[in-house]
Design a protein around this nucleic acid. Sequence first.
DNA 1: TTGTAACGCTCAGTTGTTGA
DNA 2: TCAACAACTGAGCGTTACAA
Length: 223
Amino acid sequence: DKLVELLVDADLINSFDDLFHLQLTDVANLERMAEKSAQNLLDALEVAKTTTLGRFLYSLGIREVGVTTAQNLADHFGFLQRIQDADEETLLAVPDVGEIVAKHLLSFFSEPHNQSIIEQLIKAGLTWPESEPVSAAESAELPLAGKVYVITGTLSEMGRDDAKSYLQALGGKVTGSVSAKTDCLLAGEKAGSKLTKAQGLGIEILDEAGFIELLRHLGVEGV
DNA sequence: TTGTAACGCTCAGTTGTTGA
DNA sequence: TCAACAACTGAGCGTTACAA
């Protein structure tokens, strides 16, 4: 936050794509910055150019479109252009997208200013892999298809993000809160209220060791 | 070399909104 | 009505790198 304030105050960035045109000397001359920090920033921005469609959508800051909804849109459409061209009816077919979210999406993509931002970011070098979405039939064949997981606590062997990725790749759905619809709670160290709630609801609890065993049993490599 | 500001990461928890 | 999510706050801890 502080750095963005500095960059804006110094008139180095006025739009999103300006971030990807920053020069080392400009950044290094800022308060509490020097060549090392400036280079780290430019390196991080270079890495950030390669992203995923879901992350790109999320980064656009569309109202009501967070990480999960953005990923749902990416999974459903596969291509940015298809999302931009989608009508309300098509958008409503995406999981967790109702009338309000669909209207926010339509409104966002109909704004010439927003279209310009997207074009400029792509011109600045942002890329992501695009592919045909996985069909419902293919998804249903995955070993954890239809299972709802919640992750809590600290996972020492793998990060929470990695655990989430494994579960999603196997067809599982990862949500943020425990409910009666949760099938299994993956509980690491220092698990808090979610563990208590899951125990109260009689939900299956899986510790990290058990999770790794499950992944190996399902043939996941590199665990 | 050292003190320190700031950041990065992870997590828990709350509140309000939305979708089913 | 309930489940799930977005958005947000705040804490703790370790790391990084500037500045003196």
